[in-house]
Design a protein around this nucleic acid. Structure first.
Length: 322
DNA sequence: CCTCACACCTGGGTGC
DNA sequence: TGCACCCAGGTGTGAG
């Protein structure tokens, strides 16, 4: 469900309530929501109770909350991934229980008081975990944590949860290495949309924003990544950034009550979609009906006129033989 | 090493 | 009303 803009809306919403807050209680209602948690770290509840969260950090679609250090362990964080249907809701203690509530943290903030942090997830593709923090490969901050978060973390800023270390930086991250991304893209022998969805190449993009970015850049989703001219690839990356930033400014994309911010409210970007879910409606650019095609057990939405497929890759040597 | 298909899940909507 | 079937915003794993 949630892609970078939706996850950032959640991060920003949690930040004031969780930064500096003490975890006073942890309730796990469904252990399947701990599938990313390794028992080697210790028991999830025991690792959290009595510790404080220092900040709310995000890279791509991953969220984490660095914890105060315990003498017995190195630096650790509570990690959360929303999967397809996860929500993190801030509630006043005593609020009636959400139907699909999987995990609840009881927290106490020194200034803002007590909250429940409710992790709600229909499909259970999301999860929480406590994971150790490891240094980032490039020495830059592990993810985005806002101004205050950056100050709170101080010299432990350049850490990332072990299970997030293989995820690439996202295109809104100041430390995103554009040259390295373009070079890696030029080596990918796969379709451009698969490459955009590959979180080890560039993170934060999912099915909605991949389709929107490709529409904006007028690129067909099966265009071979390694045959996209560098200038076109740079344009596409520019469109990715524009789409993500615009969606963020509008509070993310919601089709129903499934994706919501920490207060349960929906975003407005669904009104700004040009391609995703717009099959049958005229392309806002040329009027040709948008089509939907099967792709990776899901679907791709595109304008068949603005986004022409390229000729299939010629068999090796065929072009020169003639 | 790289790429791809698939498993992992539940619930809401639709059409018969 | 009931039910089968389709659909959904993601990621990790293992086969080839």
């Amino acid at each position: 469900m949630p892609e970078l803009p939706e996850v950032e809306v959640v991060r920003a919403g949690l930040e004031p309530a969780v930064s500096g807050a003490l975890i006073t209680g942890v309730e796990v209602f469904d252990t399947r929501s701990l599938k990313r948690h390794s028992a080697l770290e210790g028991r999830f509840e025991a690792l959290l109770e009595g510790r404080r969260m220092l900040a709310a950090v995000r890279r791509g679609k991953f969220l984490w909350f660095p914890l105060t250090t315990r003498q017995t362990t190195g630096p650790q964080a509570l990690v959360a991934h929303l999967g397809m249907s996860g929500q993190v809701l801030l509630r006043t203690p005593g609020t009636a229980e959400e139907g699909l509530l999987r995990i609840r943290l009881q927290i106490e903030h020194p200034e803002h008081g007590e909250f429940w942090v409710n992790f709600v997830d229909q499909r259970i593709f999301g999860s929480m975990a406590v994971d150790r923090l490891v240094p980032t490969g490039d020495g830059a901050p592990g993810g985005y944590s806002g101004f205050d978060g950056g100050r709170m973390l101080g010299d432990t800023l350049a850490l990332v949860p072990g299970q997030v270390a293989h995820i690439a930086r996202d295109p809104l991250d100041p430390a995103f290495d554009e040259k390295a991304f373009l070079a890696a893209l030029a080596r990918k022998r796969t379709g451009i949309k698969r490459a955009l969805l590959d979180q080890t190449l560039i993170s934060g993009i999912g099915n909605i924003y991949a389709d929107e970015s490709l529409w904006a850049a007028r690129v067909h989703y099966e265009h071979p990544a390694d045959r996209l001219p560098r200038a076109r690839a740079r344009e596409l990356l520019g469109e990715v950034r524009v789409v993500l930033e615009k969606a963020l400014a509008e509070g993310g994309t919601s089709f129903d009550a499934q994706y919501v911010n920490v207060n349960g409210a929906s975003g407005y970007f669904s009104h700004s979609l040009n391609a995703y879910g717009q099959q049958g409606k005229p392309c806002p650019r040329c009027g040709t009906p948008i089509v939907r095609e099967a792709f990776m057990n899901r679907s791709s939405h595109l304008c068949p006129r603005c986004q022409r497929p390229v000729r299939a890759r010629a068999a090796r040597g065929a072009a020169t033989a003639a």
